[in-house]
Write a protein that binds this DNA or RNA. Structure first.
Lengths: 248, 248
DNA sequence: TAGCCTTCTTCCACTGAGCGAAAGGATGCG
DNA sequence: CGCATCCTTTCGCTCAGTGGAAGAAGGCTA
């Protein structure tokens, strides 16, 4: 294909997707050269492919020259089966929590060795809570993450313990300490974090199990959930600007 | 490129996107041949491209052989700037409406000559309300649509009046009648539908203007909204299994 | 069992779509 | 004015992409 050094296993389709997947939570707007760097493509190649993605309606070029994910991609994304039933069932409970606490409420599941945020109700916190819908964060530094990890299979746990990345000075990075905390999470039935992900923020999280009220609302729709009533399905979290170590 | 009849303006990228955009509200699962048909591609070509889309993480192949939009695409879709501020600001109001009425609450904007649904809180209606987040429907057959149309520029209105597709026996298809209704919507400040989109369902919808309470919540974030305080921004709708013509 | 669907998969020879180094603009900064 | 950085266009080479054809795997009828 190429008149020159084209990386072996790189089809046009995979390159196009690499460009689309270059966008993430912290990079919602990218310039052409950023896109080329992230997708590891020569600039002229990126230029042409990005142009086609824009023509095809997957990306939009802002007047500034930056590229953004197009609305149309949002629309097809909505068609993905992403725990739709769970999200609908959890909504009322999240609303209650939000009304009571005025804090940020999160619904999340475990995806591999990360937390995937499914739903979010923003609180009035002046401390910005980093996680938005669709974003992923490490398991060990978030409330939902600890809950999900505490009830995860052994291989996931051992894998997670090997790389406890430091996010803030208060992130738990010692495997032994995290193990202790997870034991306690299983005993108490909830997990807490204090400034382990964001300075000035704290969180409380609880598991959603197949026998719990949220999933009960799903009973009719998803009968299989009734079988193992203690199986962990997801986790709910309340996060707020808190009485952290660095704050009052 | 092809050893054979390849359609002129069809690059690999555009073909890949055509495959992705083959999915819609009523076709969340597609077989290979359906994909090929919808994207207007020869079957072997579709086969290969779809395989690459799966390898690239944009689609997932179900055990049944059907293809579905992948979670990863949902994630990038979340990064699209789709009235994020509006949706957040509208949430509390939608919750109130939902708590009070127990019906399905919708937030929508106009996109061209269609309604685009941005947010939805499901009611307990036994009649399924067709619109889900990300879906588009005609302006003239929905409550939100009528509101948006009533305050739309003239060219949009005249365009919409030329093709009033019949959805149910009660859909308004006469331009004169719709015009009358839109006049009334402007006078009354709200729009109603009775079985015009779905048999057995009715709806009430109100406009969200730049001066209104929902947008007021956005005032700090989007100062430009304060300029034209009567500009239509979006519409809110309550839809339910109703005292329709064919029911009660 | 045979015959006939439809849908999916693999093969393969041809060729033009895709490639990217290189050069040319367009800004911006000191 | 020199030197950045970013974006855009050009252009000849060539192999990635192409799709008809044929085969495999079911499903339904007789």
């Amino acid at each position: 294909m190429a008149g020159n050094t084209s990386v072996p296993g790189a089809s046009v389709v995979s390159r196009g997707l690499a460009l689309l997947f270059s966008f993430d939570e912290t990079h919602r707007r990218l310039t052409l050269s950023e896109l080329a760097r992230r997708a590891e493509l020569p600039l002229p190649t990126a230029h042409r492919l990005v142009g086609e993605l824009v023509a095809g309606g997957a990306l939009v070029r802002r007047p500034t020259g930056e590229y953004v994910v197009a609305r149309r991609l949002w629309q097809v994304g909505q068609l993905a089966p992403v725990e739709t039933g769970l999200r609908e069932a959890a909504r009322p409970f999240m609303n209650d929590l939000h009304a009571t606490t005025r804090a940020t409420v999160h619904l999340a599941v475990r995806e591999g060795s990360e937390v995937l945020y499914l739903e979010r109700l923003s609180g009035r916190a002046s401390v910005p809570v980093v996680s938005t819908v669709g974003s992923r964060l490490p398991l060990h530094a978030t409330g939902v993450g600890k809950v999900l990890l505490a009830h995860a299979p052994d291989d996931v746990l051992t894998d997670a313990l090997t790389r406890l990345a430091r996010v803030t000075p208060y992130t738990i990075t010692q495997p032994a300490r995290l193990r202790e905390q997870l034991d306690q999470v299983r005993r108490d039935g909830y997990a807490t974090t204090v400034e382990e992900m964001t300075l000035g923020a704290c969180s409380v999280a609880v598991p959603i199990t197949a026998g719990g009220p949220v999933v009960a609302a799903l009973g009719v729709v998803v009968p299989s959930l009734k079988r193992d009533r203690t199986r962990l399905v997801a986790a709910l979290q309340v996060a707020a600007q808190g009485i952290g170590r660095t704050v009052g």
